Amino acid sequence: MLIFKQSRCIALLVSVILVSFSAISLMNPEGSAATGENVIEMGKLKSVSHTAAEAIVPGTKSAIHRTSASSSTIIPMLYTTAAEPVHTWARMVSAGWLSPEKLQRQNAVKKGTAEPKAKVTVVKATPSAAQALKKAAKGTTSVNKVKAATQQHPPATLFFSRTKLLSQEQQAEATWSYAVSEEDLLLLQKIVMAEAEGEPYQGKVAVANVVLNRLRSANFPDTIHDVIYQKSQFSPVANGRLKRVKPNADSIKAVNAALMGVKEVTDDTYFFLSLTLAQDLTVHHSRTLLKTIGNHTFYK
């Protein structure tokens, strides 16, 4: 007591130690007996195997550690495997090719869909409109007949009035007729080829029209042969080209069309020439120009 009285620091230190022990005793009221109980509990755990420990806490692993080299107390250490997730989510993505059967089914479904029907309105034609349609149909039919005939065989007989070449349907109006021989037909095809080989199809028909117009006119010879071979009229006759040429398909077709009544120039057209090739331009200066087709200029 005398020492405590002499040193207050020692007294304070002792009091602090006493307070600490009292606090420890309050937290563990069993005191020194707790140590023995703990040893007993650890002894019970010695008989627990690893499998039993894992059964107590699922998803855990057990490990046995010794507290010290001299102590025989075994303390099981339980821990969870944090690296392995308990639930594993797997995203399944399914992909597949369309089989031909599936495609056929899809096409069948598309074809089976009903399409809306369009409304059809019927308009009745007036009597005047109906007559106009009939006339147009007749005109189309006649043109088609002429085209079909020109592609097959030309007529064997030509019919003329005083002013024009008539069609086969107009033969009742004819003032005279002309029988076309094989020689006439070949000469007509050759003169068209010789004069208009490089010209368009309409130009070939127009050359044949000029020959037939001269045949009809009283101012020229009365046969196709004489019209073509008339002196100083067609340059291919003078230079011999007429004998050398062989008619092509366009020339034959153009002659057949002209014989059937197709006209690219009027019935009063009797002359034609090429302004770039002709050496004598008397016709150009003395006659009336009617039409130009390709390189040829036609006059009456």
Rank of each mutant, 00 (worst) to 15 (best):
L187A: 02
F160K: 00
E115P: 07
A130V: 09
V192C: 03
K124H: 12
V205W: 06
E169P: 02
S167W: 07
P154R: 03
A114W: 03
K147G: 05
V109I: 15
A172K: 13
A132D: 11
T113Y: 07
S142V: 09
S142E: 15
K110P: 01
A148M: 05
S181P: 03
L212G: 01
P155T: 09
S217Q: 02
Q230L: 09
L166R: 10
K110G: 03
Q202N: 13
S177G: 04
L187G: 00
E115M: 08
Q170W: 10
S167M: 13
R162V: 03
F159W: 12
R162F: 10
A118G: 10
K124M: 08
K134G: 06
S128P: 05
Q168D: 12
V180M: 14
P116Q: 11
T113C: 10
A148I: 11
H225D: 07
S217E: 01
E182W: 07
P221C: 02
A129Q: 10
S142R: 15
Q168C: 05
Q151E: 13
I224Y: 00
A136I: 04
K135D: 08
P127H: 05
T175W: 05
G198K: 12
T163I: 10
V109R: 13
K119D: 07
A174R: 01
S161K: 02
I228E: 04
I224A: 01
H153V: 11
P200I: 03
A208I: 02
P116L: 05
K204D: 01
Q151M: 11
Q151N: 13
Q230K: 13
I191T: 02
G112S: 15
A114H: 11
S177Y: 04
L186G: 01
E199H: 05
I228T: 01
K124W: 06
A130C: 06
E169Y: 10
A114K: 12
F160D: 00
L185D: 03
E173D: 15
E182T: 14
Q230R: 06
E197C: 08
L186D: 13
K111F: 10
K111Q: 13
A129E: 09
A196G: 02
A179G: 07
A174E: 06
M193R: 05
G203W: 02
Y178K: 06
L165K: 02
A194P: 01
Q152N: 12
L187E: 04
V210C: 03
K147A: 15
D222P: 03
L212E: 02
N213H: 04
E169W: 15
T157H: 11
A156P: 01
G203A: 14
E183V: 13
K204M: 14
T157E: 15
K111L: 11
K138F: 09
A148K: 15
P127K: 10
N219V: 05
A208M: 03
I228K: 00
A208G: 03
V146K: 02
K190E: 11
